[in-house]
Design a protein around this nucleic acid. Structure first.
Lengths: 149, 149
DNA sequence: AGTATAGTTGACGTTTACGTAAACGTCATG
DNA sequence: CATGACGTTTACGTAAACGTCAACTATACT
């Protein structure tokens, strides 16, 4: 069954109603595409790769709030240079289902690894920011000299 | 002319001498490859893309200390998910030659842009680290429950 | 002289992350 | 009812960043 405009009424009004309606929020593919400024194609690709698991209503994808969160994680990861496979690793931590003890310990190890990776990234950022500072000083000095004449 | 082993003498000894010999340090392609654990092919590719400018001694590449620094910048950038083109932007800031006022102002703008990008990355990292913390708590709680029984 | 060791230049292959086009289904509106 | 807006699958195309030969060259070792 379609979530057509008939059921939605005046879209603007209803959007706010939907947003505030508890948590059972659902999204169409273009909802998410617009929200994060990516193409539907990308979203379908993420599903192909097992990063999103929208429910089907007929053939159409219906995305849950969980999918929304996962997508946000994916895009954060991408901005940090993660591959989709790496983003998947984090997502799988995010929505793992509590397994046995071995599983849980394994998860803790994974988490620690991720933490270390991210901390190295923080160091890299700090290093580059310092480089930028140095360059900035140089540039400003040269500007002063030029303007002083 | 080759910097063969004849001129280098006992390599171990000479390495330390070279390292401390002021600043006119030079590197072969495999020196750098080993130092940063990448392949010569990658280094040649970076040169192709205009990120490195080794001098030629005959046909062989001779890398300067500046090239070393640039390479370090490239790899930091890569770890942060920068494309080579983006890394190049930063490198060009790093070794720009003081131009006219317009140029300098332009550089300052570039620097500010880079700073903003890096700050967004810092936010992304913070967000993911918090996610990891939450997941970690969950996992530890579940572990407690299992072990409590 | 012969072999080993580094280095060189093509040139084609590969992976990742989508873009793009074709061909089609479904509603709801004029 | 046909037209548009939005959705679908299938399949081929592409840019980036190297990997992987191949074929060659220059020095060094025995």
């Amino acid at each position: 069954m379609w979530l057509g405009k008939e059921e939605m009424g005046l879209s603007n009004l209803d959007e706010s109603i939907e947003q505030s309606s508890l948590k059972s929020n659902t999204y169409t593919i273009s909802d998410l595409a617009k929200e994060y400024d990516i193409t539907p194609r990308a979203i379908r690709f993420y599903e192909d790769q097992g990063l999103l698991r929208p429910v089907r209503e007929g053939r159409q994808r219906v995305f849950s709030e969980g999918d929304n969160v996962r997508l946000r994680l994916i895009l954060r990861g991408k901005r940090l240079g993660f591959s989709l496979a790496e983003a998947k690793e984090i997502i799988e931590l995010y929505d793992m289902d509590s397994g046995d003890e071995r599983q849980l310990v394994y998860f803790l190890e994974k988490i620690e690894q991720q933490r270390l990776n991210l901390q190295r990234q923080q160091q890299d950022i700090k290093a580059i920011l310092q480089e930028l500072k140095r360059v900035e000083k140089r540039v400003k000095r040269e500007l002063q000299e030029i303007r002083h004449k």
